[in-house]
Simulated assay, not measured.
Amino acid sequence: MGNPLSLCVVALDPLLEAGAVAALSGDPDIALVRPEERADVAVVIFDRVDRQELDLVAATGAGPHRPAIIVIASDMSPAEAAEAINAGARGLLRRHEVNADRLARTVRTVAGGDCTVPPELIDGLLDQSGEADAYHGSRGRGPDWGLDERERAVLRMVADGRETDEIARELCYSPRTVTTVVRDITQRFRLRNRAHAVAYALRTGLL
């Protein structure tokens, strides 16, 4: 087993902070640190996705150590999820969905450079995207704009934190095909990695 991941918890409400710390304190793979210390991952917790909260996400991710950010909110709409990712979040969770195991898995996912978003939020964004596609189509956007169905299916599962082999099994593709699809997306839109691809797709309505 390697060194534990360092993690800090940031919350506007001290009670929310204490609950997250308690949930993670028993995991031997996670070392809790203070917000001002170096952290691989920062968990940012709040009730509403509002401007003050989004500024907190951005400020936490822009700190000297640039931790990967997980946002936990009481609730969030697809549009608010896109705003949180645009502010720098790599992982999104609703408070009623969180338990110690799921939070620990999300920490490991974002620390590894991936992005995870609740599937129903992605479904909402897909609905919004369908309306956007119709709008852009009426304005003469070409057929190569956006993502095809295979690309959307793969990227949705990447957003849900799935590994390449797992995506390949579920979609009946080879792992090489999944890797190629993700690489094609990142190259087409000049993105850095899988997490950036998911963030970009959510932010721009491609997903």
Score class of each variant (00 low, 15 high):
1 M>E: 12
2 G>M: 08
5 L>D: 13
6 S>V: 00
9 V>F: 12
10 V>C: 00
10 V>T: 00
12 L>A: 08
19 G>H: 15
25 S>K: 14
27 D>M: 12
28 P>R: 08
30 I>C: 10
32 L>K: 09
32 L>E: 10
34 R>P: 01
41 V>G: 01
47 D>Y: 15
48 R>D: 05
49 V>R: 10
49 V>M: 03
52 Q>F: 15
52 Q>I: 02
54 L>M: 09
56 L>K: 00
56 L>R: 12
61 G>K: 01
61 G>F: 10
62 A>R: 07
64 P>A: 01
66 R>S: 02
70 I>G: 02
71 V>P: 11
71 V>W: 15
73 A>N: 07
74 S>Q: 11
78 P>Y: 15
79 A>M: 07
80 E>R: 13
80 E>A: 08
81 A>T: 04
81 A>P: 12
82 A>L: 01
93 L>N: 03
94 R>L: 06
96 H>M: 03
98 V>W: 14
98 V>F: 04
101 D>I: 07
103 L>V: 02
104 A>E: 08
107 V>Y: 06
107 V>P: 07
109 T>M: 03
110 V>G: 01
111 A>H: 10
114 D>Y: 10
114 D>P: 05
115 C>I: 03
115 C>P: 04
117 V>A: 01
118 P>A: 00
118 P>Q: 02
119 P>S: 13
121 L>R: 07
121 L>H: 02
124 G>F: 12
129 S>C: 10
129 S>H: 07
130 G>C: 10
131 E>A: 15
133 D>P: 05
133 D>G: 09
134 A>Q: 12
136 H>L: 14
148 D>R: 05
148 D>G: 11
150 R>M: 14
151 E>P: 06
151 E>F: 10
153 A>M: 01
156 R>E: 06
158 V>L: 10
158 V>Q: 07
163 E>P: 11
164 T>N: 06
164 T>F: 11
167 I>Y: 13
171 L>N: 03
171 L>G: 01
176 R>G: 03
178 V>S: 03
180 T>Y: 13
182 V>R: 09
190 R>E: 14
191 L>T: 03
192 R>W: 15
194 R>A: 09
196 H>N: 12
198 V>L: 07
199 A>Y: 09
201 A>G: 01
202 L>P: 00
205 G>H: 04
